[in-house]
Design a protein around this nucleic acid. Structure first.
Length: 421
RNA sequence: GGAGAGGUGGCUGAGUGGUUGAAAGCGCUCCCCUGCUAAGGGAGUAAGGACUAAAAUCCUUCGAGGGUUCGAAUCCCUCCCUCUCCGCCA
């Protein structure tokens, strides 16, 4: 969320910056809201001051109120109630509008309208296709490790069942990733709830704008997380983090639940785009303006995993028009899948600056005795499991039909090959 | 799901209608004193908001939301959460 104060101080600047993200800021709306809000506050506060004064006087003088005081105070009470009701309404309107405004892009994000203007900043390895390459849905079915028909039977399309070597592979990969983030990168492992409250979804920026993509239980108003980012972001909701505690680095492995309505008909085969998938997510709270280095570090941490797995990958810097709602700057990491013959996004690493902490009312105290600031938050997948599985299967496919498993995983799987059936 | 207890400032913990935004203790900050051993004294120490150049000042907030009252942390209602016991259950 962008602060109303900032918006009022630099309206034209925000208008311009938000246009880059294809958002047309309604400045008239904001200024009229702000004006009404201030007027109501001033009026209401004046009445309250008077009421407090009279009440206190009665108390100080240890007497019963005079009849005319009672009449006057009742009258004022009514006025205050009316003013406060209007104020609440305005406040809610302002807030509702502010919640729909996307984060503004960082200065060094390339300008562009859509994903065609994203920039590939780095490529590692070569995108090759072999004669024996096959898409993962064929491999998975041949080896009996991915059972799509069974998943469709019990849950419908866009679900997957992993069996035997497949299930163990997924479990091994997430364990390895978690261990790496904890041991090599210094993250604290978190195992959060997968169902969260509405406020939590608002805090991360998933609500109110992206309700369409979320699973929701109406009875309890609980929402299934579309990523662990949502939960990790709320770890310090309504809290003032003590001095010298930052940076805080969290990592969690959770399922991610997404309706994928907007992708209807796309990527329906296999396990590339599904309603429920495993993901390891990194999340950091850092001091104000200290997100730059953190972002680069997280990019390194995620690509390290790709490298260790022996995968070909490329790093994409998103242009302004393709940035996510809450993001100020984003790198995507895509791995090559020779059987599907495409690049698969396995990670998206973003700084949200103070956008989320403001929504969540998460603050920190930079120093003992100093005022509060909003920390900057960053999130990044590290990494999304199904697409990593796809890439491992399609890259590891041998001519004889077996799969070679990256050596870093053997400690977890207990085997270095998925044998041909 | 049933019965009971409770939710107060960074923490502990007072406070059942009127100088209580909140005693006291701890912690923390600054100052003073003292050179001898985790000593003493003093001052300060909530977050938001309105106004302001800044300050002063004012408003709000004692789990959340309503209500009663001239006036509520204190009374009433609803909800949420925590703890104990019972029931049920992985």
């Amino acid at each position: 969320m962008i602060s109303l104060e900032q918006l009022n101080s630099y309206p034209d600047r925000y208008k311009k910056l938000l246009l880059r993200k294809n958002f047309n800021l309604d400045l008239d709306l904001i200024s009229s809201f702000s004006k009404d809000r201030k007027e109501l506050i001033t009026k209401s506060d004046n009445y309250k001051q008077h009421r407090n004064y009279v009440s206190k006087k009665i108390g100080d003088e240890k007497r019963k109120p005079f009849q005319e005081e009672i009449v006057e105070m009742r009258n004022i009470g009514e006025k205050i109630k009316i003013l406060d009701n209007s104020l609440n309404e305005i406040q809610e309107n302002i807030n509702n509008y502010l919640l729909t405004i996307p984060n503004i892009p960082s200065d060094d994000v390339p300008y562009g309208n859509d994903d065609s203007q994203n920039i590939e900043v780095k490529r590692f390895g070569e995108a090759q296709i072999y004669k024996h390459s096959k898409p993962h849905w064929e491999i998975g079915s041949d080896l009996g490790i991915i059972d799509l028909p069974a998943a469709a039977g019990m849950s419908g399309s866009r679900f997957y069942v992993l069996k035997g070597y497949g299930a163990k592979l997924q479990r091994s990969i997430s364990s390895w990733m978690l261990d790496t983030h904890v041991d090599r990168h210094g993250y604290i492992e978190i195992d959060p709830p997968y169902l969260v409250k509405r406020e939590t979804m608002i805090g991360s920026g998933n609500l109110p704008k992206f309700e369409d993509n979320l699973y929701h239980d109406h009875e309890t108003d609980l929402w299934l997380i579309p990523t662990a980012e949502v939960a990790l972001n709320s770890l310090h909701r309504n809290e003032i983090i003590s001095p010298f505690m930052l940076p805080l680095k969290y990592v969690a492995r959770t399922p991610s639940f997404r309706k994928e309505h907007t992708a209807a008909g796309r990527d329906v085969r296999g396990i590339k785009r599904v309603h429920q998938f495993e993901k390891v997510e990194m999340f950091r709270f850092v001091e104000k303006d200290k997100d730059k280095i953190a972002l680069e570090e997280m990019l390194e941490e995620a690509t390290y995993l790709c490298k260790e797995l022996g995968l070909t990958y490329r790093i994409i810097k998103l242009c302004t028009g393709d940035l996510g709602f809450q993001s100020a700057e984003t790198y995507d990491i895509e791995v090559w899948a020779p059987g599907s013959k495409e690049w698969l996004e396995v990670s998206s690493i973003s700084t949200c600056k103070e956008f989320q902490s403001r929504r969540n009312n998460t603050r920190y105290r930079p120093d003992k005795g100093s005022g509060t600031e909003f920390p900057f938050t960053l999130n990044g997948s590290g990494l999304a499991l199904p697409r990593i599985i796809i890439s491992i299967l399609e890259n590891g496919l041998e001519e004889d039909g077996s799969i070679s498993i990256p050596s870093v995983l053997v400690k977890y799987t207990g085997w270095d090959k998925i044998p041909k059936k």
